[in-house]
Simulated assay, not measured.
Amino acid sequence: MPKYKPADYEVLRRRCVELDQAGWKQGPIAQALGLTQGWVSQTLKKYRQQGPLALQWRKPPGAPTRLTPDQLCQLVEELNKGAEHQGFAGAVWTRPRINEVIKKLFDVSYDPSQVGRLLKKIGWSRQKPQPKARQQGAGAVAQWRQERLPELKKS
């Protein structure tokens, strides 16, 4: 059975109805379109009940958003203040930490796996650790390599 994109099904539904109106049986229609007989049956049933509107592609409805655009702006402001400002040890934001802030501010809870989707929506990307510490001084590193490293290699 071929894999179709969701929008392709509108074309298939229209073709299904055309073949039905041309006198084809459901089995041959399903075989010609590469779909199941149940799909053909449901498509024809919806067409009989709702007419041509039943054939149109519609974006599947999702759950309504739990945070308003204003709340998302407020969340960005709070996150920009930093994790330590919110009472966390360290400056790194994690999904569970962000979820705690959302709970505290808006009394809304998300599954941590969905916090990443929310962050993408507000334009945040995941944090990547820096390869070396910002606070690291080049002079101190050079001195450590000259003095301490040879001692460690000896033992």
Rank of each mutant, 00 (worst) to 15 (best):
Q71G: 13
Q71H: 11
Q71M: 14
Q71Y: 10
Q71K: 14
L72I: 01
L72P: 00
L72F: 01
L72N: 00
C73T: 15
C73L: 14
C73R: 15
C73V: 13
Q74R: 10
Q74G: 03
Q74I: 03
Q74H: 08
Q74P: 01
L75I: 07
L75S: 03
L75T: 04
L75N: 06
V76T: 12
V76D: 09
V76S: 11
E77H: 13
E77T: 14
E78D: 14
E78R: 15
E78L: 15
E78N: 15
E78F: 14
E78M: 15
L79G: 06
L79C: 07
L79K: 09
N80Y: 12
N80L: 13
N80V: 08
N80D: 15
K81P: 08
K81N: 13
K81G: 13
K81R: 15
G82Y: 11
G82V: 09
G82F: 11
G82A: 09
G82E: 10
G82N: 09
A83C: 11
A83P: 10
A83M: 10
E84A: 10
E84P: 04
E84S: 09
E84K: 05
H85P: 04
H85M: 11
H85C: 11
Q86R: 14
Q86A: 12
Q86C: 12
G87W: 04
G87L: 06
G87D: 06
G87T: 05
G87A: 07
F88S: 02
F88C: 02
F88G: 01
F88W: 05
A89P: 04
G90Y: 08
G90Q: 09
G90F: 08
G90L: 08
A91P: 08
A91E: 12
A91D: 12
A91V: 07
A91S: 13
V92E: 01
V92T: 04
W93H: 06
W93Q: 05
W93L: 07
T94Y: 06
T94W: 03
T94G: 05
T94L: 06
T94V: 05
T94H: 06
R95M: 07
R95P: 02
R95D: 07
P96R: 04
P96I: 02
P96E: 05
R97Y: 01
R97L: 01
R97C: 02
R97M: 03
R97K: 13
R97E: 01
R97N: 02
R97Q: 04
R97W: 02
I98H: 00
I98P: 00
I98A: 00
I98G: 00
N99P: 07
N99D: 08
N99C: 13
E100K: 11
E100M: 09
E100Q: 13
E100P: 02
V101H: 02
V101Q: 01
I102T: 08
I102W: 03
I102V: 14
K103I: 07
K103A: 07
K103C: 06
K103H: 05
K103D: 04
K104D: 06
K104G: 05
K104Y: 05
K104A: 11
K104N: 09
L105Y: 02
L105V: 00
F106V: 14
F106P: 14
F106I: 14
